[in-house]
Simulated scan of single mutants.
Amino acid sequence: MTKSIEKLLKLEELGQFLLSIILFNHLGYSWWVYPALLLLPDLSMVGYLVNTRTGAWLYNLFHHKLVAILILALGYMFNVSALTLAGIIFFGHSAMDRIFGYGLKLPDNFKHTHLGWIGTKG
C-alpha cells in the first residue's frame, strides 16, 4: 500500500473516530465514560486462548464496524441508551485501531490483519 493511500485511509478512520465522539456527546453520559470504555472491545482477544481461528473470529466480531452500526441502530430504534453507547464505543474503538494499523484478524496469526502484518513497514 502506498504511503499516500495509507495516510488517506488513516484520515478516514480519524474522521470516523471523531464521529463516534460526537455521537457519544449526544447521549448525555459523563465525559469520562467514553475513555473508560474505549478499550473494552479488546477483551475479545480472550478467544486467542482457545486458538488463532477462534481468536480471530471473536476479535473480528467485536471490531467489525457493521456490527457496531447495527448495535448502535438497535439502541437508537428501541431507545436503549446502553445499547447505543455500546455501538458507539465499538465503532470508535474499531476506527481507533485502524488508525494505529490494527485491522481485522486473519485466522493464521494475531499479527496478520486485513491491513497487512502488524509491526512491519511495507
Rank of each mutant, 00 (worst) to 15 (best):
M1D: 02
T2C: 03
T2E: 11
S4E: 14
S4G: 01
S4M: 09
E6T: 13
L11A: 10
E12F: 13
G15S: 13
L18Y: 10
I22E: 05
L23V: 11
F24L: 07
F24H: 06
H26N: 12
H26T: 15
L27P: 04
L27E: 08
S30P: 01
S30I: 13
W31G: 00
V33I: 15
L40W: 12
D42H: 07
D42P: 00
S44C: 12
M45L: 14
M45K: 15
G47D: 06
G47L: 09
Y48P: 09
Y48F: 15
V50T: 13
T52Y: 03
R53I: 11
L58G: 11
N60Q: 07
L61F: 14
H63R: 06
H64I: 09
K65D: 02
K65F: 00
A68C: 10
A68P: 08
I69V: 15
L70F: 14
A73S: 10
M77D: 02
M77A: 11
V80D: 06
V80N: 04
S81H: 08
A82S: 14
L83F: 12
T84Q: 13
T84P: 01
I88A: 04
I88M: 09
I88E: 05
I89L: 04
F90K: 06
G92C: 09
G92I: 13
G92H: 05
M96S: 06
D97V: 12
D97E: 06
D97Y: 02
F100V: 14
L106C: 05
P107C: 09
D108R: 06
D108G: 11
D108Y: 00
H114V: 12
L115W: 00
G116T: 06
G116C: 07
W117I: 15
T120R: 04
T120S: 09
K121D: 10
G122I: 12
G122W: 09
